[in-house]
Design a protein around this nucleic acid. Structure first.
Lengths: 198, 198
DNA sequence: TAATTTTGCTAACAGTGTTAACCACAACCA
DNA sequence: TGGTTGTGGTTAACACTGTTAGCAAAATTA
């Protein structure tokens, strides 16, 4: 039993080493330049060792999607908690989302990369549900009387606005447009709040 | 002279054959499954022939980004022209944008694929300018008194909303959520219009 | 000690983007 | 006409990629 524990601990160590190596590569050169060989070299094992811990490269990506959503949700939770007024909370939430998309751009790209078949994955990843229900709660406080269906609609709209702004900003990166982007963010979110009851 | 014309015509023929072959592959299997070898095979020439017409694979992608923006802008222009009232034009514009993102999903993915380094490209592609100024004009009619700077802000916001909705819909593709998505679109755009003067 | 499982490796397959070296053929010049 | 120069097009290779089959050595069990 104790021995088995040793084994599993060792296994777990390698697994986290793989993830850590992949994370370093991801942040240094982007996902398209992360290769199984580079990971193997970095953890000091041979290539197939990686495959004993992850079925394929997509499985590693999935790991980062999970991590990413957890990081994002955590960030949103802490930032939202700093405000008390629901509308202000929503603004804080939006700012946090936007913030994350920049400070963890490589995560964000992986989470929403349209080129990658995230389509199927999404429905089966619990971490995303935590994210959505976090936003749900904030919206619920803002419109307590609304039906779930309505809140879902509003949630969908808000997420679209936030993601759209984040990704357009990423593509359009003129570098100095920081203040403009924050203006756009405020503009959009305030519009959203103003219209929350229609 | 005539001979030279023949030559250039031949060259042009091959070039368009390459683009057409790539387009077929793109729509059948997605960009990640488009390979230079497959293109070469499809046009009946050897592999390096492709490289005499396109510097690398990214150059072919760029071609599609241009094509995509032209298709999108054309679609927007024709759909917008069907309305006379500015606010209705904006709604038609938005619907057209959303429509395009679905009917030409593979183009759209290529145009905004975050995983691909579109970042640098954007600033040097004239086709995008046509797109932005088309939207500008519609917004201009809606708020004739506004400054260019303000319209730019509003344009940015609108684009974010549209792109966000389009890409979230793509990732979240439950298949049947079509009516919901159109609701979200209307919800967001109407909110946008309502707030256009703030 | 002998048998067996586990652990990790080397080597290969099939595919990718990209490029260097070459070949045959047409056009030009002597 | 014979030799040279360009050019359209090729084959073959390089350096990668994800992924897997097969094998050797080490550790565990009987």
């Amino acid at each position: 039993m104790e021995d088995l524990s040793h084994k599993t601990i060792h296994k777990e160590k390698i697994r986290t080493a793989i993830v850590e190596a992949a994370r370093q590569l991801l942040e240094k050169e982007g996902w398209e330049n992360v290769s199984i060989r580079k990971i193997a070299e970095r953890i000091g094992y041979s290539l197939p060792m990686v495959y004993t811990h992850f079925e394929n490269k997509e499985a590693i990506q999935k790991e980062f999607v999970k991590q990413g959503f957890n990081l994002l949700t955590d960030h949103i939770v802490t930032q939202t908690a700093l405000e008390t007024e629901p509308a202000q909370q929503l603004i804080a939430l939006s700012a946090a989302y936007f913030d994350f998309s920049f400070s963890h751009a490589c995560y964000y790209r992986l989470m929403f990369g349209l080129g990658i078949p995230s389509c199927q994955q999404v429905n089966e990843i619990g971490e995303i549900k935590r994210f959505t229900s976090t936003i749900f709660e904030v919206l619920r406080k803002l419109v307590p009387a609304a039906t779930d269906e309505r809140i879902f609609l509003k949630f969908h709209t808000l997420w679209s606005v936030l993601h759209g702004l984040a990704s357009i900003s990423m593509v359009n990166m003129t570098g100095a447009a920081d203040t403009l982007q924050k203006q756009v963010l405020l503009d959009a979110v305030k519009g959203f709040i103003k219209n929350i009851n229609d």
